[in-house]
């Protein structure tokens, strides 16, 4: 087992100094996700302005992988367009499901490519994805809460 591959400097740095942590107002969508096997939890809020993810705020309890992953997520999607954020979500999910076969595109995934080593550890992939699942869910909720310019989708 190559521990350094799993616990890369970048990951440990995000774990020790998480970016964007704390729950903030305003927000349109909030999601609470739990990993039932280990009890890791995250509450994550999304604030959308127009087509931009204006803020992602969160509070979490969990291992280094799940905490670092949420911190990296914050850096990657805050300020991005909703479309780009979803693209990165897709890329990151694919990377995590690659069983170590992919390295990830540093152009789009930036620090998140450090998680490519995690994908070799099936027991830890869920840890890395917990925050991203919360983001996906919160974004859906936010979009449902905001009247869109397309109109007519409000319920």
């Amino acid at each position: 087992m190559d521990l350094d591959e799993l616990y890369q400097e970048v990951i440990l740095d995000h774990y020790k100094r998480p970016r964007g942590v704390g729950l903030r107002e305003p927000y349109e969508g909030e999601s609470h996700q739990v990993n039932p096997t280990c009890g890791d939890e995250i509450t994550l809020r999304v604030h959308v302005e127009g087509d931009t993810v204006a803020d992602v705020s969160y509070e979490n309890a969990g291992c280094s992988i799940s905490k670092a992953s949420a911190s990296v997520l914050y850096e990657l999607v805050k300020g991005a367009s909703v479309e780009d954020a979803l693209k990165r979500l897709g890329e990151f999910t694919e990377l995590m499901n690659s069983k170590g076969r992919e390295e990830g595109d540093e152009e789009t995934l930036e620090d998140a490519v450090a998680f490519s080593g995690v994908s070799k550890y099936p027991m830890r992939v869920k840890c890395a994805l917990l925050g991203w699942m919360a983001f996906k869910d919160a974004l859906v909720r936010a979009e449902a809460a905001i009247p869109t310019s397309g109109g007519g989708s409000e319920q």
């Binding site: 087992m1 190559d2 616990y7 280990c38 009890g39 291992c63 905490k67 550890y121 830890r124």
Partner: peptide, 22 residues
């Protein structure tokens, strides 16, 4: 300051099998 998942992972790299979680 160290989550049990991380403890278990490092122990595994030393060949030591423990249970982590709730």
């Amino acid at each position: 300051g160290v989550h049990p998942h991380d403890v278990g992972q490092v122990l595994d790299s030393e060949g030591i099998a423990v249970r982590v979680g709730h």
